[in-house]
Design a protein around this nucleic acid. Structure first.
Length: 574
RNA sequence: GCCCUCGUAGCUUAAUGGAUAAAGCAGGACUCUUCUAAGGUCUUGAUGGGGGUUCGAUUCCCUCCGAGGGCACCA
């Protein structure tokens, strides 16, 4: 819809004029609006010629009226200080709706065709419980991956496991000192995490431990059999448990390659960079100078010869570029690692590893109610399983009350979709750079601007369709009487429907926010008003009744698609 | 000290440089013998301070104040 208006506008303006149309918040300013007249009037020379924004707008309004197909607009108005506002005719809206109704892939685009994007997200450390931070990361990454896929990209969902590094030396040291094999066998991640926490507590009074941890890692890296065996064991047990958690969350990955995979490339990479004169020794360690980027040197090898996170990231980047030839790589990782990525991206330029667009998709930290960081080391964190468990239990209570007649199985499925949907939506709707203070109430919001509200709207619409005996669309539907859809609520819903492709597009351009979540909420609100104010099943006019059902069906379909992009299920009943 | 991110209603958040700053929660008033009240309707309430650029600033620039994070051998 927006494109049709843009096409008309462009045909009337000098080539290359930047022009856009937006949907004003209020209908009194039109269904669509453009500020192009104000832009034109502010160009040098225009003022001298006496062109005020308002005069340009008025002139443009007349031109558009003449250029548009007869009956396309209901009204075009120039408004102070220089907007041109458009109202579409009912006929235009109805015809557009007919197109949307018959488009099974509405909103899908081909803009990413033949392009690959790697989305790295979740990336937990093995031997550690998935916490609220991983949850936020995974939800954001999954949704981005879905949206890119919907826009035609080939998407590689990459879980870059933290399965290597000094932390495993520490874990091995801790296990040697206090470990209990039975406890680890019984409850691997929990037992290992406890060891890790204890290690850090004891380090405070015994600095010697720190050194021992580093030593154990060095042995591990050197191929020590015992350490290797322990590490492998920790890793396998952890992955089993991780997979169970992801399944509950409804998330899956294409690649599980973690840091350890690049272990053997560390030495050659460092040596090569050294030989090429890119890396140099400084204060005993190996660094890449980044003065040209106004950044401190990037450390790629510690003075004890052990590798670092950044070293593995360089090897990983090289591997990815070669193997997948991606157009983009998105690193979904918290805000606090910005500096690390500035360095990585600078190093990529130095090494000419720049065939893909690299982006750090950052997000605010989840902080505790005290305002401080929730840290695993200090044992202050909330686990993902606890959050999901609470959410599902709360949803179960609600379903129990509302829909007591459903089978236990149905109730459980609904509770899971609703509970998890609530948590996901709450994270996505405010995907901003600001830090989030962890708060159960916020996490488990079920009313208002929430996941369950969207699911409720979908279920209501599906319920109407079920009760109407409305059959899924078929060929004869195209002949329906769409002109019967002329109520204000129906027309408003149609117009909202037309904004869907734009909301998807925005979501994959602006990686810092989720315009889609925002859009879907507004969409649901308009849909709610439609069936609240418009009788559908009881409509005495059969042809209008059928037409209204098509609107409900289309709206439900778009809502389900949109929820799917956010990674949220849309149950038929809730 | 330097760098990054941020500051909007009591709380959590919206707003490609545009029009009367938009919602949810919480508070107040309505609304279930009519398609699911996880809903709908009405209502109270906000851009940290000061400058600047602009026809127009929540948005861009400067400065002050405040919060969080980071700053080579953790990830």
């Amino acid at each position: 819809m927006k494109d049709s208006i843009l096409t008309i506008l462009r045909s009337l303006l000098p080539a290359g004029t930047p022009v856009d149309v937006s949907v004003p918040e209020q209908e009194t300013f039109g269904h669509y609006s453009t500020n192009v007249a104000m832009r034109l009037a502010s160009v040098k020379g225009a003022k001298k010629a006496g062109a005020t924004p308002m005069a340009v707008a008025q002139e443009l309004a007349v031109k558009i009226e003449a250029a548009a197909p007869a009956g396309f607009f209901e009204k075009i108005e120039a408004a102070a200080p220089g907007f041109v506002n458009f109202w579409l005719s009912k006929k235009t809206l109805q015809e557009e709706f007919k197109k949307v109704f018959s488009d099974k892939n509405y909103g899908r685009s081909e803009s990413g065709k033949k392009k690959t994007v790697i989305v790295e997200y979740s990336s937990p450390n093995i031997a550690k419980i998935l916490n609220v931070g991983h949850l936020r990361n995974t939800i954001i990454g999954e949704s981005l991956a879905n949206i890119f896929e919907f826009s035609g990209y080939t998407v590689i969902r990459w879980n870059y496991l933290g399965d290597w590094g000094t932390q495993f030396g520490k874990l091995i040291a801790a296990y040697r000192q206090w470990g209990d094999k039975k406890a680890v066998m019984k409850n691997p991640i929990e037992a290992l995490q406890k060891l890790y926490v204890r290690f850090h507590e004891e380090t405070k009074s015994d600095p010697e431990l720190e050194r021992r941890g580093q030593e154990e890692f060095k042995k591990l890296e050197g191929g020590d059999k015992e350490n290797r065996k322990l590490w492998k064991w920790f890793r396998e047990e952890s992955i089993k448990e991780l997979k169970r958690s992801y399944k509950a969350l409804g998330v899956d990955f294409d690649v599980w390659t973690g840091e350890s995979f690049f272990e053997n490339e560390m030495k050659p990479v460092v040596r090569e960079l050294c030989e090429r004169g890119i890396a140099e020794r400084s204060e005993g360690a190996m660094v890449i100078k980044l003065d040209a980027f106004n950044l401190p040197p990037a450390l790629i090898e510690k003075s004890d010869g052990a590798s670092l996170y950044l070293t593995r990231d360089i090897a990983n980047l090289r591997y990815r570029l070669k193997k997948y030839k991606p157009a983009k790589i998105l690193y979904v990782i918290g805000n606090e690692q910005s500096f690390q990525f500035e360095q990585l991206f600078a190093v990529a330029k130095v090494l000419k590893l720049d065939s893909a667009e690299l982006r750090h998709v950052k997000y605010g930290l989840v902080r505790g109610e005290s305002g401080k960081k929730l840290s695993t080391r200090e044992g202050r964190t909330v686990s993902m399983n606890e959050i999901l468990g609470k959410a599902v239990a709360l949803a179960k209570e609600a379903v129990q009350k509302k829909n007591a007649e459903l089978s236990e199985k149905e109730k459980n499925e609904i509770a899971e979709a609703v509970g998890i949907g609530a948590v996901k939506y709450n994270d996505l709707k405010e995907n901003r750079m600001t830090d989030i203070v962890f708060n159960w109430e916020r996490m488990l919001a079920f009313t208002g601007d929430s996941g369950p509200y969207l699911q409720y709207t979908y279920a209501r619409m599906r319920s109407i369709l079920r009760k109407s005996g409305y059959a899924e669309r078929d060929a004869k539907d195209a002949g329906r009487d769409f002109a019967a859809l002329d109520g204000d609520a129906a027309l408003a819903l149609m117009r909202k429907l037309f904004e869907f492709p734009d909301a998807v597009k925005k979501s994959n351009e602006l990686l810092m926010t989720s315009p889609l979540a925002d859009y879907l909420y507004k969409f649901a609100s308009v849909a709610n008003k439609f069936y609240e104010t418009t009788p559908i099943l009881k409509d005495e006019n059969e042809s209008r009744r059928q037409a209204r059902l098509t609107l409900i069906e289309t709206a439900a379909r778009v809502l389900k698609t949109g929820l799917g992009l956010l990674g949220i299920q849309a149950p038929e009943k809730i």
